[in-house]
Design a protein around this nucleic acid. Structure first.
Length: 155
DNA sequence: GCCAACGTTGGC
DNA sequence: GCCAACGTTGGC
């Protein structure tokens, strides 16, 4: 199956592209939205991910990651001490899943949201839809490639 | 800090 | 199944 493209949001105060660069890879725990979870379950090793900084100054795409491990149960849901604890999810019957993503690239500067909004070539991107809050979302190859092009142009 | 948009919960 | 109340996301 052909490689697919995604966008994943993270608040840099919680986990930034710099942390991912240091860590090399990380498990994407804490997704508690069914639509986002379902997208993660579709992810295949090698799929590319736009790493988006939300609740940031500025909000925008900070770099690129790749899927290095396909969906498996989110163990944070089992941990009563975790912010992501969900008693409805058990090891026997897990409700929430996560993937592992690996660092690919950090953009020299965050590609800010207003710039994405202003670009006609990105029309129709889920990220840009009014009221969109989906933290894991598919991105078309054309949009993905265009975002990379914009990021390179900023050098 | 505000608030629009959205998802979830639970009474009925 | 409807929908009001509530909690969360995330830009501004």
């Amino acid at each position: 199956m052909a490689k697919r493209y995604w966008l994943m949001k993270s608040e840099p105060d919680v986990y930034s592209i710099d942390r991912l660069e240091q860590d090399g890879s990380t498990s994407w725990e804490g997704v508690r939205n069914y639509q986002a979870r379902n997208f993660m379950m579709e992810m295949k090793k090698g799929d590319r991910v736009l790493f988006y900084h939300s609740n940031a100054e500025p909000p925008g795409v900070a770099g690129v990651a790749e899927v290095v491990r396909e969906a498996y149960p989110d163990t944070a849901a089992f941990d009563p001490g975790s912010d992501y604890h969900d008693p409805a999810s058990t090891p026997e019957k897990p409700r929430w899943f996560m993937v592992d993503v690996g660092f690919v690239e950090r953009f020299p500067a965050v590609l800010p949201l207003p710039e994405l909004k202003a670009d006609a070539a990105l029309e129709g991107m889920e990220l840009l839809r009014k009221g969109s809050r989906l933290s894991v979302q598919p991105v078309s190859k054309a949009h993905f490639d265009h975002v990379l092009k914009l990021a390179r142009r900023r050098r």
